[in-house]
Simulated scan of single mutants.
Amino acid sequence: MTTLFSQSQTWTFPFCPEPPDWFLDWGSIQNHFDWIQNLEGCQQDPIYHAEGDVLIHTKMVCEALISSLNWRQLGVQERSMLFAAALLHDVAKPAFTKIEENGRISSKGHARQGARMVRQILSQFDPPVQFSIRETVCAIVQFGSLPIWLLDKPNPQQSVIKASQVVRCDFLALLAEADVRGRECSDRQEILDKIELFREFCQENNCLNSPRQFPSAHSRFIYFRKDNGNPDAEMFDDTKCEVVLMSGLPGSGKDYWIKENLPSLPVISLDALRLEMNISPEKNQSAILDKAKQRAKEYLRSRTSFVWNATNTSKQMRQQLIDLFAAYNARIRIVYLEVPLEEVLRRNSSRNAPVPEAVIRKLAERLDIPDITEAHQVDRIVNN
């Protein structure tokens, strides 16, 4: 996976404790970050979180993390990433917490949405947090509970190998351990034993502190598309053509990038079809998508490489398209472009047919950035 960006490599998170005293300045953290205050008063299930609300839990998690010798032995930047993840790991709980019919309190779905919120929060830092660091923090938040729930996964091996492609699994174990030590529950030791088992399992699968390696890009692609594949199996590459799947908010520069880098390839553009068919971006897009897929199938049948140019900001939408392309034995390359949201809105306002600002902001809130588990190749081109 290729990631291009323009920014310094050095980064530390505000108020991240430092040696020799490792002091946690919680008062400054509360005064500095609005999203921390939103955690106060958010209830938690007393069976799993007898310590109190989410704010109390978050402070306890941070205290547990910075007390960890394994965390203290990391580099400055790695400590900052994990500290940021600890502060933000439950940031979406206030919006996702509800009381069930049986009286229990749950917050299903808060991890995935939490990762999206983390992306927005870190993007608003001045200067913005470097892309690779920001996405690492997002991934730690999204997959932070994997060490605890590993044995409940349908395919534990694929789960850890998949996670390792986007984040270090030892980071997940560190956050999960802090999460457990930062709460009051009767099954603490049982959960800590699960986390240790997670570490051992990742070590056995060669993915504890680095991505699991595959014999080839095609082997990796096929592995993540099967339920019970073998990560060591080298798959025969039977691809017939290449589909370049563009991804990015309107105004991120997809048209320009295609013109500069792939001028000879035919392009299926949903924007162009939208104008051709006179359908507003705010109306039902099914007719446009059907027309685009018809053209794609024509190229795929003739083994002609082409570009699919649309926003493709959700993983679900990309997966549907990738399933279609893979069925015709196409090699899939995703090209994701990112510029700051303010620049996206400025560019969009100067277009002949601008997308409504509300639509762009909604896409940004639900953005799933492509990762290497989705395709043969993923290029992430970021300009801060």
Score class of each variant (00 low, 15 high):
54 V>I: 07
56 I>S: 06
56 I>K: 12
56 I>A: 05
64 A>N: 05
65 L>A: 02
66 I>C: 00
67 S>H: 06
69 L>C: 08
70 N>I: 11
70 N>F: 11
70 N>K: 15
72 R>T: 00
77 Q>L: 11
79 R>M: 09
80 S>V: 05
81 M>V: 15
82 L>S: 02
88 L>T: 15
91 V>T: 10
94 P>T: 10
96 F>E: 03
97 T>Q: 14
98 K>S: 14
101 E>D: 13
102 N>D: 14
103 G>H: 14
103 G>Q: 10
105 I>K: 06
110 H>N: 04
110 H>T: 03
113 Q>K: 13
113 Q>H: 13
115 A>C: 05
115 A>K: 00
116 R>G: 03
117 M>T: 04
118 V>W: 02
120 Q>L: 15
120 Q>D: 14
121 I>S: 06
129 V>F: 12
129 V>E: 12
130 Q>V: 12
131 F>A: 08
137 V>P: 08
137 V>Q: 09
139 A>E: 13
139 A>F: 09
142 Q>G: 07
143 F>L: 15
145 S>W: 00
146 L>T: 03
147 P>W: 04
149 W>E: 10
150 L>V: 08
151 L>T: 01
152 D>S: 15
154 P>V: 09
156 P>Q: 05
156 P>S: 02
158 Q>T: 03
159 S>P: 00
160 V>F: 09
160 V>S: 02
160 V>E: 01
165 Q>C: 01
165 Q>M: 01
171 F>P: 04
172 L>V: 05
174 L>M: 12
177 E>N: 07
179 D>H: 08
